[in-house]
């Protein structure tokens, strides 16, 4: 997989920590590979919205990548509950179901962005840079691990 300029946290130059939420093990593994190619670290994984809420409180990630259609509790409800408890949470919705009503509902509940499956690494990288805004910095590929 293509390696990107490492995205790190501006405050301590540590890797950005991600919580990946998807009921598909494949989708989680695929997203994990992508965020690792961005220089990030998978802090936790969850297969449904309920687990995502408890995992968020446990690992306190910098970014959440959240599927929408999941058993037990869907992604949009999970976003709402996470953002209610953690107003600074940065949640990016990652779903194959990307119609306008769904995107609007997710943004209204507090999601920061949306990316449609199949996910292209370049698109996800740019979205994460955008969502991190001033809290993220990039370092050239060769500089990884030197901080």
């Amino acid at each position: 997989m293509k390696q990107f300029e490492a995205l790190t946290r501006k405050r301590d130059h540590q890797p950005v920590r991600y919580l990946i939420v998807d009921d598909s093990v494949f989708a989680r593994k695929s997203l994990a590979k992508m965020v690792e190619s961005f220089g990030g670290q998978v802090a936790g994984e969850a297969g449904d919205g309920c687990t995502a809420i408890t995992e968020y409180a446990r690992v306190n990630p910098d970014i959440v990548l959240m599927d929408i259609t999941m058993p037990q509790m869907e992604g949009i409800e999970a976003v709402e509950r996470i953002v209610q408890e953690h107003p600074d949470a940065r949640v990016v919705m990652v779903s194959s179901v990307g119609y306008q009503d769904n995107i609007l509902a997710a943004l209204q509940k507090g999601a920061r962005h949306f990316v449609q499956k199949p996910v292209k690494p370049d698109a996800l990288y740019e979205i994460i840079r955008y969502v991190l805004n001033d809290d993220g910095v990039t370092a050239p590929v060769g500089a990884r691990g030197e901080n």
Binding site: S24, V25, F26, T69, S95, S96, Y99, Q116, K117
Partner: peptide, 21 residues
């Protein structure tokens, strides 16, 4: 099995997006 489910999720999800829009 997992791969088939994820393929179904992507194919059907993308089509559902178009129909909803």
């Amino acid at each position: 099995w997992e791969a088939v489910c994820e393929l179904a999720n992507m194919v059907i999800g993308n089509a559902v997006t178009q129909l909803n829009d």
